[in-house]
Design a protein around this nucleic acid. Structure first.
Length: 184
DNA sequence: CGCATTTGACCTGCGC
DNA sequence: GCGCAGGTCAAATGCG
């Protein structure tokens, strides 16, 4: 896995540092852009939505994303089709939790210590039948407050958990909610 | 008891 | 061909 690298964060501004449950620091996409293929779907995964948003508003990302979720996007997405095949999305978040609630149910299937990092990498698979989307979660070595999450593949189903509705009611933040807010 | 997590073993790809 | 590193499997374990 050396076909990409995370963009460094340029942003030092933080509108609501004390309110932050996490910040979205970097966001990258890989492989085919799913928008054309999945345009018929009424509810694409949140990162696809955000990918579109961030690409279209790349220069405005940092100021359009400081909404109710108190999240901040410091760097916009970069698309690549060099690898072809499976869609990959990677982003860095500031969070105490490693597993951010994105509305899908994940099953952990592996954990590995990686070279050049004191933090282990965790491997998750979508637990829905027939959906082989995977994600890797690893804390950044320089600053373990940041979590690097890489999604691989595209869900062939809707979110298992009604994250938006449930968490809206409880006032709890989710990645999905944040991106929804950013989208407006 | 069923399901999720843990964790060591195994597999695979890549560089030398 | 060998060794290393990353990724996955699956038995053991824990928890609700």
């Amino acid at each position: 896995m050396s076909s990409y690298s995370l963009l460094s964060s340029n942003s030092s501004e933080n509108d609501h540092p004390d309110d932050m449950s996490f910040e979205i620091m970097d966001f990258l996409t890989f492989g085919e852009h799913p928008r054309e293929e999945t345009s018929a779907r009424d509810q694409p995964p949140f990162w696809e939505q955000s990918h579109v948003v961030l690409q279209e508003n790349s220069s405005e990302a940092s100021r359009t994303s400081g909404g109710d979720c108190s999240k901040q996007v410091s760097q916009s997405a970069r698309a690549s089709s060099s690898k072809g095949g499976r869609m990959k999305v990677a982003f860095k978040t500031k969070s105490e939790l490693e597993v951010l609630d994105d509305g899908y149910k994940w099953r952990k299937y592996g954990k590995k210590m990686v070279k050049n990092s004191p933090n282990p990498r965790n491997y998750y698979r979508c637990s829905s039948d027939g959906c082989n989307v995977k994600k890797r979660v690893q804390r950044e070595k320089e600053d373990s407050r940041y979590v690097i999450t890489t999604y691989e593949g595209v869900h062939n189903h809707h979110a298992l958990l009604p994250a938006s509705a449930d968490y809206e009611a409880s006032g709890k933040d989710t990645l999905a909610n944040c991106f929804q807010e950013s989208h407006v």
